[in-house]
Structure formats: structure tokens, C-alpha cells
Design a protein around this nucleic acid. Structure first.
Length: 103
DNA sequence: AGCGTGACGGTCG
DNA sequence: ACGACCGCCACGC
């Protein structure tokens, strides 16, 4: 039986380049519509981010993680390079770049 | 066992 | 469209 955090990592690892997903979407795919916080916890206490595309996970508003986690502006730079669309206010345009886990 | 905390989400004003 | 509030669930003290 895989742990919740294990499944979270599997899904994050499947996010295609140029796309992003949200904490809530992952939680919902795992059967916990209100478990966004557990997804956060799973990622935070998981493997180092250089082994998994955490930069492709944003919140439901399309905002990136607090910055100081990847480095100032680093996360946005990576996403832009991968082809993710950003809006003028600095947020990801979920309307175009949202990827929904199909678990 | 109780309280506070958080890389969040949905609703309300 | 935005900020404030409350609700979730697991963890640390």
C-alpha cells in the first residue's frame, strides 16, 4: 500500500512540461478533496526538489510558491522556459497551462 | 491531550 | 478582481 505522500510524488513526477497543476487537484485525484494541505506536507517532507518538478505545482489562483523556496524568481524563470503561460500580474494562466492528474 | 502552524481551498462581502 | 475568514488534516511542541 503506497502512502499518500508516495502517490503525491508520483503524480507530480508525471506533470508534463509546459503544464502545471494545483495542490487541490492532486488531493482530489487521491480521494481527498480537502487534502490540499496534506499534499503540501507530502511535498515539503519529500525528496529534494531537484528530483521532482515541484516548480510545476501552484495554488488554485495560479500563484507560485513563496519564492524563497526555489529562489527569487527562479521558479517563474523555469516555468517560462518550459512554455508555461504567465499573465501580466505574474501568475500562471491556469486557463491555458493547467494539467489535471488522471489518477 | 491541547494548541498553534501552514508550499491551500472555497465562500462571502 | 481582491482581501478577509473559516474549514481541512497532519505535524511539532
Amino acid at each position: 500500500m503506497e502512502s499518500f505522500s508516495q502517490k503525491v510524488l508520483e503524480i507530480v513526477a508525471q506533470i508534463p512540461m509546459g503544464k502545471v497543476t494545483t495542490y487541490g487537484a492532486i488531493a482530489k485525484a487521491l480521494g481527498k478533496p480537502r487534502g490540499a494541505r496534506m499534499v503540501v506536507w507530502a511535498l515539503w517532507s519529500g525528496p529534494p526538489w531537484d528530483q521532482i518538478p515541484y516548480h510545476r505545482v501552484v495554488n488554485s489562483r495560479g500563484e507560485l510558491a513563496p519564492g524563497h523556496i526555489f529562489g527569487e524568481g527562479a521558479q517563474r524563470e523555469i516555468l517560462e522556459k518550459e512554455g508555461v503561460s504567465f499573465k501580466e500580474d505574474g501568475r500562471v494562466d491556469l486557463k491555458i497551462s493547467l494539467w489535471v492528474p488522471q489518477n
